[in-house]
Write a protein that binds this DNA or RNA. Structure first.
Length: 547
RNA sequence: GGGGCUGUAGCUCAGCUGGAUAGAGCAGCUGCCUCCUAAGCAGCAGGCCGCGCGUUCGAAUCGCGCCAGUCCCA
């Protein structure tokens, strides 16, 4: 990328000054200045150097500037600005090159090789299959899916996974609830379990099971349990599909029990002397590895804990050869992070392989009133309903405008009400406008010849050059997201790109009497089209041809 | 009591691996459609970047302390 090329140029200029020969570590930044008057790129090298060699930063800057060797010839001018910035201005020719490159790369524009050779497993959503997905799940679905798209674009060998919690107390209560609902349907006397799930969906699952398997299913305990949660899991998958989210793998917790993975992990931890007996229970020595206290693996009634299963699960992931495990967890699980990390250390694995994105929660609101989200009250707004109400595009985009670090107030009324003015439409509208111009060109029987046969030098308006500059940033955005796991930067960029395009659109007419100029502008339009399409595709948001 | 996250414009939020005049959307006000879609553009107004101290040539950004909100654990 261009940033590294500039870094090399500055580096060699610095070494030619011979000022920093005695300095061992010299790190400076290459950045895009906020204001145009400071050029296209800028470096603080002189400011960093000043205290190291006790010289005036302006003098150092001047010395560096004199030694800049622009072999590729894309620098128009270099300026020194107080207190010691070196600002570089690029020739327009350099930006014309960007157009050629984008057109050439097309849908590959934005691809990077930074992740090459790294196997990554991204686990997210992982909702218990005992009820429909709700708003909070939707946030992680959108964030996780887009993050996955970006990581793949950055050449990571990525797999996505949904951990299905189909074992344990929750499932038993859920099964008992479905059973009670089924019996009620058959007119039998029912004792609803304590803490029963009471939602409408419980009754519809019961109805569906009775319809497909007859009343006998009620008495077949294992069958009932499996069919019940699998029915719900299918619902979850359908909702995910609606949200345009798909997983490479659904990993069922029960397999860890069936394959004795949990037993194995426990005996191996005992052997390593990481686990110990206390009273009748078995504990893992997590406090030795940074957790605040030791945690129970097996209770005194001889049942293994959820934690034990989770250790086995993570071990399983590592055994599958992943170099990095990324988990997206809701912030309410944050107390869990330390103990899972500790467990990984106890297993003798590298805890750095585990990266956990703790996503803050979503508060659902209707107007100014908070809406309680509980699976058991039965009164809950499902993700499915929500997609119907606001649309996938608006939903995904909205979720991706916020950093995972912020608690999100999601006001249904507001999102519905303002849907016309939602930022997603602003971005999509830019795409529709591009298509509209292309359509108009077609009507005029004006055929774009391809960048090789176009005189790009005709592009010299401010609105044109500025647009190219924004297009060029796309790769940096992909890089930043992949390295920092911050997919929300994509909407910030999408918005910037749309703004730049809308400005271009309002100032510059693409199709005109001047044929050569029209061709040049069609080249630019084409690259804007490619970039916007690629951005929207990473976001999982549709790119409409008209609106 | 301990911990995670947050505190930036009236509202919802970007920016936070330190940079030169702090941004967007919504809400408000003023202009702009005989011309590729006005779901747009241009402009106005709106900010002790929670508070204090520190580090630095330079702090919304880093460190420490405090205050507030939220969630988790006790």
């Amino acid at each position: 990328m261009i940033r590294e090329q500039i870094r090399q140029i500055i580096k060699s200029a610095v070494s030619k000054t011979k000022m920093l020969e005695k300095v061992k570590k010299f790190e400076f930044s290459i950045e895009r200045p906020r204001h145009k008057k400071y050029g296209d790129w800028s470096t603080n090298a002189a400011l960093i150097a000043a205290p190291l060699i006790k010289k005036n930063p302006m003098d150092i800057a001047q010395a560096i500037e004199k030694n800049i060797d622009d072999t590729k010839g894309f620098l128009d001018k270099v300026q020194i600005a107080p207190p010691g910035f070196i600002n570089m201005f690029f020739k327009k020719d350099w930006y014309y090159q960007v157009i050629e490159r984008i057109e050439d790369l097309d849908e590959k524009f934005g691809e990077l090789d930074i992740g090459k050779g790294q196997k990554v497993l991204l686990e997210y959503v992982s909702a218990n299959p005992v009820g429909p997905l709700h708003l909070g799940h939707g946030r992680w679905a959108a964030v996780g899916d887009t993050l996955a798209n970006v990581l793949r674009k950055a050449s990571y060998d990525l797999k996505t996974e949904f951990y299905v919690n189909n074992y344990g107390l929750q499932i038993e209560i859920f099964t008992a609830s479905v059973k009670a609902a089924a019996m009620e349907k058959l007119g039998r006397k029912v004792q609803w379990p304590e803490n029963a799930y009471r939602g409408k969906y419980i009754h519809s699952i019961a109805g569906s099971l009775l319809y497909h398997y007859g009343p006998e299913i009620i008495e077949q305990e294992d069958e009932l349990r499996n069919k019940a949660y699998m029915t719900e899991l299918e619902e979850i998958k359908a909702t995910l599909k609606k949200a345009k989210v798909s997983f490479d793998n659904y990993f069922e917790e029960s397999t860890l029990h069936e394959n004795k993975n949990i037993e194995d992990i426990i005996s191996s931890l005992l052997k390593k002397k990481e686990a110990y007996k206390k009273d009748e229970a078995l504990l893992l020595n997590t406090s030795k590895h940074g957790d605040e206290k030791d945690r129970v693996l097996v209770r005194s009634n001889n049942e293994s804990t959820y934690f034990a299963a989770d250790i086995a699960y993570h071990q399983n992931k590592l055994e599958r050869g992943f170099d990095k495990l990324i988990n997206i967890w809701g912030a309410d699980h944050h107390g869990y992070v330390a103990r899972v990390r500790a467990a990984i250390i106890a297993l003798g694995e590298d805890p750095k392989k585990l990266e956990i994105i703790l996503g803050q929660l979503v508060n659902l609101k209707k107007g100014s009133k908070p809406v309680k989200m509980s699976k058991r009250t039965g009164e809950l707004i499902t993700l499915d309903d929500l997609i119907d109400e606001v649309g996938v595009d608006a939903l995904r985009y909205t979720f991706l405008t916020k950093s995972t670090d912020t608690t999100l107030d999601f006001d249904i009324d507001l999102v519905k009400e303002q849907s016309d003015k939602n930022p997603v439409y602003y971005v999509q509208y830019a795409h529709a406008r591009i298509c509209s111009i292309l359509k108009f060109a077609k009507e005029k029987r004006l055929k774009y010849k391809g960048v090789k046969d176009v005189n790009l030098k005709l592009l010299k308006e401010e609105g044109e050059i500025d647009l190219i500059k924004v297009l060029e940033e796309f790769e940096e955005i992909v890089e930043k997201i992949a390295l920092n796991l911050t997919p929300h930067l994509l909407t910030t960029y999408a918005n910037k790109l749309a703004t730049s395009f809308h400005y271009f659109y309002s100032k510059i007419r693409v199709i005109s009497e001047d044929n050569n100029l029209s061709q040049a502008r069609l080249a630019l339009l084409n690259t804007a089209h490619i970039t916007l399409r690629n951005v929207l595709s990473l976001l999982g948001v549709s790119a409409p041809e008209k609106m």
